[in-house]
Computed example of a mutant assay.
Amino acid sequence: MSGHSKWATIKHKKGALDAKRGKTFTRLIKEITIASRQGGGDPDANPRLRTAIAAAKAENMPADNIKRAIQRGTGELPGATYEEISFEGYGPGGVAVIVEATTDNRNRAVSEIRHTFSKNGGNLGEPNSVRFMFSKKGIIAIPKEQADEEKLMNIVLEAGGDDLNDEGDTWEIITEPSAYEAVAQAVRDAKIETTMSEITMVASTYTKLEGATANQMIRLLEALEDNDDVQNVYSNFDMDATQMEEVAG
């Protein structure tokens, strides 16, 4: 497991996301609102909304919060009008980075993201400068003590997943986005706890970073993720697991 997925798994382990629950809820509410605006408020007929609601429930978001976010998206309740913006660029060591933002102020978002890149050893690139290196996949990371390989492989095969990878102390299920919801539900039905479960962007190749360059890359990721407009950050960096644990601590 490299880059974004490894980093996200470690942050889950250490409870870093729990400390930012407010940020997590804000990100999910924006996603629900936009999904409702674009595809309607019925999750049965709106796959993006269905996925967003499942993610919100996984974070124990109250049902009333989800309902209000849907109603703001469909126009039943007043609320901010969000715009989706995607940025592509390079981090320390030439690592490819994609940033997905949802904002009510485009100029502010562009200025802040550009500043964050330059302040942390990176720079923004042109559209499609790095996106070709990534493909959208569902990833479900499971601690090995939660389930054995045979049990998980049966879930992958029966629910339509693509692959099951051994990532040291973690199993990693890979799915196509269209199969993600069914596989994630099968894992939940089996009462198996996960450290990460989401649709993300997976790189085709990875760039290994070490020492100060690796630390600078982590600082860039953290700075981007701390921005209130940023929804998701994807990269193709890899680094030694021990160093990543130390940085995450």
Results as ranks from 00 to 15, higher is better:
H4D: 10
V95T: 09
S135H: 14
D162V: 11
N165F: 04
P92E: 10
K144G: 12
N154Q: 11
V130W: 04
A159K: 04
Y90H: 12
E100Q: 15
A214V: 06
P62V: 04
E222N: 12
G40E: 00
T103L: 04
L17G: 03
S235E: 07
R106G: 06
T200N: 10
D104S: 14
A63W: 00
A186D: 00
V110L: 06
P92Q: 09
D228Q: 01
T200E: 10
T81E: 11
A56Q: 10
G75E: 14
Y180F: 15
L220Y: 08
A8K: 05
L209G: 08
I140M: 05
T175Q: 01
A223L: 05
S111R: 15
D189F: 01
A147I: 09
G160Q: 01
E245S: 06
L77G: 10
I113W: 03
I32T: 03
T213G: 02
K119E: 12
H12R: 10
T26G: 03
K11W: 09
T51K: 12
D226F: 10
A80Y: 03
G22D: 08
R21T: 13
K191V: 09
R37D: 00
M196S: 15
S135L: 13
A45N: 15
R106T: 14
A69Q: 11
G161A: 04
I174A: 00
I140C: 12
L164G: 11
D163I: 02
V99S: 02
E198R: 14
G89V: 13
F87G: 15
A58P: 07
S129V: 12
M244V: 05
S204R: 15
F134C: 09
M244C: 02
N165I: 02
F237T: 09
L224D: 03
R114W: 04
K11S: 01
E83Q: 13
S2R: 08
T51Y: 07
R37Y: 03
N65L: 13
L28C: 10
V95D: 13
A63Y: 01
E59I: 11
R188G: 08
V233Y: 00
D228P: 04
T33S: 04
V156F: 02
K20G: 04
A69N: 07
A147F: 03
M133G: 02
E112L: 13
Y82V: 04
T170Y: 08
T26W: 00
T24C: 00
E176K: 15
S111H: 14
G75C: 15
S2W: 06
K119N: 12
N60R: 14
T205Q: 09
T102P: 02
A241C: 00
A69G: 14
Q71T: 01
I199W: 01
D64P: 00
I29A: 01
S135M: 12
